[in-house]
Simulated scan of single mutants.
Amino acid sequence: MIDLQGFGPQIALGAWMTVQVAFGGLIVGLVFGLMGAAAKLSPYAVLRGMGQSYTTVVRGIPEILVVLIVYFGGEDIVNRIAESVGYNDYIEINVFVAGVCALGLSFGAYATEVFRGAIQSVPVGQIEAAVACGMHSHQIYWRITLPQAMRLAIPGLGNLFQVLLKDTSLVSLIALPELMRTSQAAIQNTKEPFTFYFIAALIYLGITTVVLVGQIYAERWANRGVKRASA
């Protein structure tokens, strides 16, 4: 049996923090992804340009730099705003919020393309039928387009989420006590890097396995009506 030398609770808390950061980044990223897809599919050139700029810039920067820019850049902006209104004490932004926002920003840039492809895959005939029934554009989007796009996007979003889950290790650079940060602290005290890196690898593998199983069930649930209709 592997001896964790008393660091078991810290490792468990780090794993729980990793899960929280991952799901927080997922929620933020889905919002950015939907907004980015809507912008890129917009009939307005300005919105299309904004959507294209967002995906190009964020996907062109390593995630580690996104994390550092969001954390240190956000802290700098907050303090400049505080100084402009006469507040001179230094303000530190919450590392959890910064980590979630940074990972969500990166996730959203890739999710934008997943959503865009899914929305474009919705049969045009269904949109035309909704228009013929007298539905307004926002009703068509929420009742026809988005539900089907979400079904089509699940495989791609699931793959992106597994990548996001592993990218949570990057937030250890801003001192968030997630799994890698707590593992490194244990290694510094015990001088047993293989043991704790191996434990961290097993935990990541376990979490991604659970996510994969959840993705499979989500795909089955989303496609159950489609299968019956095509049978």
Rank of each mutant, 00 (worst) to 15 (best):
residue 89 D to A: 09
residue 48 R to E: 09
residue 213 V to G: 01
residue 142 W to Q: 04
residue 149 A to E: 06
residue 145 T to W: 01
residue 218 A to F: 12
residue 9 P to M: 03
residue 207 I to M: 08
residue 2 I to W: 10
residue 64 I to D: 04
residue 79 N to Q: 05
residue 40 K to A: 09
residue 181 R to C: 14
residue 106 S to G: 14
residue 62 P to V: 03
residue 16 W to A: 14
residue 33 G to C: 08
residue 141 Y to K: 00
residue 211 V to Y: 04
residue 107 F to P: 07
residue 140 I to R: 07
residue 103 L to F: 10
residue 74 G to R: 05
residue 109 A to Q: 07
residue 135 M to C: 04
residue 231 A to W: 06
residue 24 G to T: 03
residue 32 F to G: 01
residue 46 V to S: 09
residue 34 L to F: 07
residue 154 I to T: 13
residue 12 A to G: 10
residue 42 S to A: 13
residue 25 G to V: 04
residue 46 V to T: 05
residue 65 L to N: 05
residue 218 A to G: 07
residue 198 F to S: 12
residue 81 I to Y: 05
residue 109 A to V: 05
residue 161 F to V: 04
residue 159 N to C: 00
residue 161 F to Y: 06
residue 223 N to I: 06
residue 10 Q to P: 09
residue 221 W to T: 11
residue 144 I to V: 14
residue 224 R to C: 03
residue 149 A to D: 06
residue 44 Y to A: 10
residue 10 Q to F: 08
residue 175 A to F: 15
residue 218 A to Y: 05
residue 18 T to G: 08
residue 219 E to L: 12
residue 219 E to C: 12
residue 7 F to A: 05
residue 81 I to Q: 10
residue 152 L to G: 15
residue 95 V to R: 13
residue 120 Q to L: 13
residue 116 R to G: 11
residue 81 I to W: 03
